[in-house]
């Protein structure tokens, strides 16, 4: 069939799809060409074409600057902690909720723990800055219990802990819902069979529930690994202050800072680096998951 023929035949569908096509071309594909800026010394007055090509110079500058290396390290540390601790929290929460007999209460907890996920980090950041400040309620409780106050917001270690904790606080409820959905899909016959074989409650969790969750866990893990250079810009931007820069300045804040000082080449280069690492991580972990599971798990 000819091109014209194909087009004519599916005229209705193609017209219908046109806005979508335009949208993705305009708002997603065209801006992708911006990565060219990473290879230029972009001087705005000189224009896009007039600015000098510099090859990999921006990337060399990046990896030669202690500033960026620090941002890279912080990004890696924070996201590893988030992943390491934050990944399992929703699984545990879901398992515990699943064991709860009183379904009304279960729903209640589910609703309550889910709420934080609905709110932006502007709001949550604001709330935490109030709650964890030196005269805030947490510190007053600390004073009562341990006779000491903690500088959650200005002490490096405490601040990182706070970031990780609040991240878990925000996302565990949401994550748990995904796992609960998967749990609800487990066939009761599996449990019945295991019980007949004499399995106790712990063994049911160990040998029935967890294996059934494994695919979901793997897929979410792969997706999360792709985000290894996402240390949570929204969260950090709304919670940090210069005194904890040393541990909380991440790639995204670095990109924004250099954008504002109009170091556009450098800023774009950092962004490109992050995108590429994310892509590589997803592909690699997907490959690994498929390899290890004999082609069974994976997101494509």
């Amino acid at each position: 069939m000819t091109v014209e023929g194909t087009i004519r035949k599916h005229r209705g569908l193609l017209w219908m799809f046109l806005p979508c096509l335009l949208y993705f071309v305009i708002f997603h594909y065209i801006p992708m060409f911006g990565i060219i800026l990473a290879f230029k010394d972009y001087v705005i007055g000189e224009g896009f074409m007039g600015s000098r090509w510099v090859g990999w110079e921006n990337f060399e500058t990046l990896f030669g600057s202690s500033d960026f290396l620090r941002a890279l390290r912080n990004t890696f540390v924070i996201s590893t902690l988030r992943l390491g601790l934050g990944f399992f929290a929703p699984i545990i929460l879901a398992l515990l909720l699943n064991e709860l007999r009183w379904s009304g209460f279960r729903r209640g907890i589910q609703i309550v723990t889910y709420i934080p996920y609905l709110l932006s980090w502007v709001i949550l950041g604001g709330i935490f800055l109030l709650v964890f400040s030196i005269d805030g309620p947490v510190n007053r409780l600390m004073l009562l219990l341990f006779d000491t106050k903690v500088r959650f917001l200005t002490d490096d270690l405490w601040f990182i802990s706070l970031l990780v904790f609040t991240h878990i606080w925000q996302s565990a409820g949401y994550g748990a819902v995904i796992y609960l959905a998967a749990l609800a899909g487990i066939s009761p016959t599996l449990y019945e069979a295991a019980t007949i074989d004499g399995a106790n409650r712990w063994q049911l969790v160990r040998f029935v529930t967890l294996p059934s969750l494994a695919p979901t866990i793997v897929v979410l893990l792969i997706l999360n690994l792709g985000l290894i250079l996402d240390a949570g810009f929204d969260q950090i931007f709304n919670m940090y202050n210069p005194i904890v820069y040393d541990v909380s300045d991440i790639i995204d804040t670095y990109v924004l800072r250099h954008l504002i000082s109009l170091d556009i080449g450098l800023s774009t280069a950092a962004g490109v680096f992050k995108s590429v690492v994310g892509l590589v991580m997803v592909v690699a972990s997907n490959y690994l998951a498929r390899y290890l599971s004999g082609d069974e798990y994976g997101i494509w």
């Binding site: 997603h28 801006p31 992708m32 060409f33 911006g34 990565i35 490109v272 995108s275 892509l279 997803v282």
Partner: peptide, 10 residues
């Protein structure tokens, strides 16, 4: 488009 984007400037 879920994975790749050109960044803030473009």
């Amino acid at each position: 488009t879920m994975i790749f984007s050109g960044g803030i400037v473009p």
